[in-house]
């Protein structure tokens, strides 16, 4: 271990410290990046150029802006209320049940190569969350703020977990392509990408089992929250 090995790591304590002190994350990340680049001997102009270059390759992360006008307009015309009304017709629907259904749907669609059918902006906020809140309030009456927070966080979590542990099965998505390229670059031949995808299935099943146990218990937690706040 030499000093040259350690210098590129200088950004990591800065990140941890900055987040711990609750400074603005954008500033923390920028400072960590610039410090790391200076530490390995890059010139200021070179660093600015690198930032611009990497911005351009990260533009796909701005694509969510495309659907905001559509979602905004629909929300103004009552999309969320309509989603809640729709679900309240099914009196047996529960928040945990809907989430479990969405988990399976999301994981399956990602596994067959359709990761674009969900999304935090296009599905979770305008449709899934109002449905969950509608179903929970049919059962428990007006929801305390703590329950609303819990339901919303769980909805975002299901979207992420189902996507992550589903998409690795499909061979033409980023992860399998990356692993395949990595193996070939390192001289390991004869591994079919389909095999890499198949070996992701046991973890996908484990994720479904683990998370569905938690979702089954969610309805009881919501009922308990509501009962406690009634007693207050």
């Amino acid at each position: 271990m030499t000093l040259g090995d350690l210098l590129p790591l200088i950004g990591i304590p800065l990140l941890v410290g900055g987040f711990a002190l609750r400074l603005n994350p954008l500033l923390v990340v920028l400072i960590a990046g610039i410090t790391t680049a200076l530490a390995v001997g890059m010139a200021p102009l070179q660093i600015v150029e690198l930032i611009g270059d990497k911005f351009l390759s990260a533009r796909s992360l701005a694509l969510f802006i495309l659907i905001l006008p559509m979602i905004g307009l629909l929300e103004r015309h009552g999309l969320r209320e309509q989603a809640a009304r729709l679900v309240s017709r099914f009196r047996r629907a529960s928040a945990g049940g809907i989430l479990l259904f969405y988990f399976v749907f999301r994981q399956f669609s990602a596994a067959i190569g359709l990761p674009g059918v969900g999304g935090q902006v296009s599905m979770v906020r305008p449709l899934l969350v109002p449905m969950l809140e509608g179903a929970a309030s049919v059962r428990s009456g007006k929801l305390p703020e703590r329950t609303v927070e819990r339901i919303r966080a769980e909805a975002a979590a299901v979207e992420n977990i189902a996507l992550f542990f589903g998409e690795d099965i499909f061979i033409a998505l980023g992860a399998v392509l990356l692993m395949d390229a990595f193996l070939r670059e390192n001289g390991i031949k004869g591994i079919d990408p389909i095999k890499i995808g198949l070996w992701a299935i046991p973890s996908a099943i484990a994720a479904l089992l683990i998370h569905s146990i938690r979702l089954v218990r969610l309805d009881a937690k919501i009922a308990l929250d509501a009962a406690e706040s009634d007693g207050e």
């Binding site: 960590a32 690198l50 533009r59």
Partner: peptide, 26 residues
């Protein structure tokens, strides 16, 4: 909204600084 992009830029800086190599050594 732009935090993901700024983090991707940081990832690019780490790649250019070979931070990954250092972690591999560790």
């Amino acid at each position: 909204a732009i935090l993901p992009i700024v983090l991707a830029i940081l990832g690019g800086v780490f790649a250019a600084a070979k931070t990954g190599e250092s972690i591999k050594v560790l």
